[in-house]
Structures are given as structure tokens and as C-alpha cells.
């Protein structure tokens, strides 16, 4: 599948790919908007599943299979469940409720639109016509000490392996730090959430 998509993306006008992306994007945007506007807490969580799932598909389109899988496992497998637990434990109204929003909707709208305009303008100005080429994946680049890219041979098949090499190589310290972070968060969350 990945090679197929890669081949498709290299053609100059990629109708099926773009149509698929358009459908996906519209779906994700609608779902995201529903998350922040729906009057039902549980529905919001379910719409969020759609966005997160859509994200995983986007990662697949971008040929990041490992991240896509992680996204499915962590987000849809764990975080959404956490949210549902949260909803249950705080006895949120499971049906429609009218007071989920506060009284600054218009501020939120203005700020959101403003941010969208600024980001959209900047991004379009800078990368208006750049095409995806995935070249970086096919020739995994390893940086030497001076930071210049050194090309080494290899195929796309070893990508997950290369990812692992990166994490346990240059990113070893952040990796260990995250492990401590998760332990600490666990301990603290237990203390805060349990009844004394």
C-alpha cells in the first residue's frame, strides 16, 4: 500500500489521491467542529474518534506506518477510553445539555479565525507549491556531527528499523525522560484521584 501511494504521489496530477484526501479532510474538519460544538458530551468523544482515526489515515498517506499504528493504539485504544471514563466518573450528562459552552463563543470564533488566517497565510507564502516527494524516506539521511546530511544506501523497508535506531541513538535521553515522565504522572495522578 505504501509503495502504491508513493507511486501515485509522484505523478504530476494525482486525481484519486487528491479526491481521497479531500474526502478525508472534509470528514476530519467536520468531525473536529462537531467535537467543539456538539451539545452531547459522549458524542463529542465519538466525533473525536473520527478525527483521531482520520489522523492515522493521514499518517498512512504520508507513509508513516509506525506512527499511524501508534496513533491507533495510544489514542483510540487508551486516550479515548480515558476520556469516556472521565465523562462517567464526573457524572457528565449523557444526553443533550445546553450549557456546555460558556458565553465567549464569539471571542473563540474570532481568535480561531484569526489564527487560521495567520497560519494559512504564512504557510501558503512559504510552501505554496512544494510537492511531497518522500525522497528523504528512500535515502535515509543520517546527520554527522557537523549537521550536514550524509547519504547512505538503503531501502524503504528498513524504515521502522531506522526509526528505532534514531530513538535509541540520538533521542535516547528524551526517550528515558518520557519513561520517567509517565511514571511520575502515574504516581501523581493516583494520589490526586484517589479518595483519602
Amino acid at each position: 500500500m505504501t509503495s502504491l501511494l508513493a507511486a501515485a504521489s509522484s505523478t504530476s496530477f494525482d486525481v484519486p489521491g487528491n479526491v481521497a484526501f479531500a474526502v478525508l479532510a472534509v470528514l476530519m474538519v467536520v468531525a473536529a467542529i462537531r467535537v467543539v460544538t456538539t451539545r452531547n458530551v459522549v458524542h463529542a468523544a465519538l466525533w473525536l474518534v473520527v478525527v483521531l482515526g482520520g489522523n492515522a489515515v493521514v499518517y498512512l498517506i504520508l507513509q508513516a506506518e509506525f506512527v499511524a499504528l501508534t496513533q491507533l493504539l495510544v489514542y483510540i485504544g487508551a486516550i479515548i477510553v480515558l476520556f469516556l471514563f472521565g465523562i462517567m466518573l464526573t457524572r457528565a450528562p449523557l444526553g443533550r445539555s445546553e450549557d456546555l459552552d460558556n458565553n465567549q463563543r464569539w471571542i473563540g470564533a474570532v481568535v480561531g479565525v484569526l489564527l487560521l488566517l495567520v497560519i494559512g497565510y504564512s504557510v501558503t507564502q512559504s510552501w505554496g507549491s512544494d510537492r511531497l516527494d518522500f525522497a528523504a524516506y528512500d535515502l535515509p539521511q543520517v546527520s554527522d556531527v557537523a549537521g550536514t546530511a550524509v547519504e547512505v544506501g538503503g531501502s524503504g523497508n528498513g524504515r521502522t528499523q531506522a526509526l528505532a535506531n534514531e530513538i535509541f541513538g540520538d533521542y535516547l535521553i528524551p526517550f528515558e525522560v518520557v519513561s520517567v515522565l509517565l511514571t511520575g504522572a502515574l504516581i501523581g495522578a493516583i494520589v490526586l484521584a484517589r479518595r483519602d
Binding site: N102, Q104, I107, V111, L114, L115, L117, V118
Partner: peptide
């Protein structure tokens, strides 16, 4: 939430 609004509004305006 007014803090939140202030935070993002300030960020947005500064960015703009």
C-alpha cells in the same frame, strides 16, 4: 476561560 481567551488572543494578535 477568560485567561484562556486572553492567552490565545494575545498569541494570535502578536503572531498577526
Amino acid at each position: 476561560q477568560q485567561y484562556t481567551a486572553l492567552f490565545f488572543a494575545a498569541a494570535a494578535i502578536l503572531a498577526g
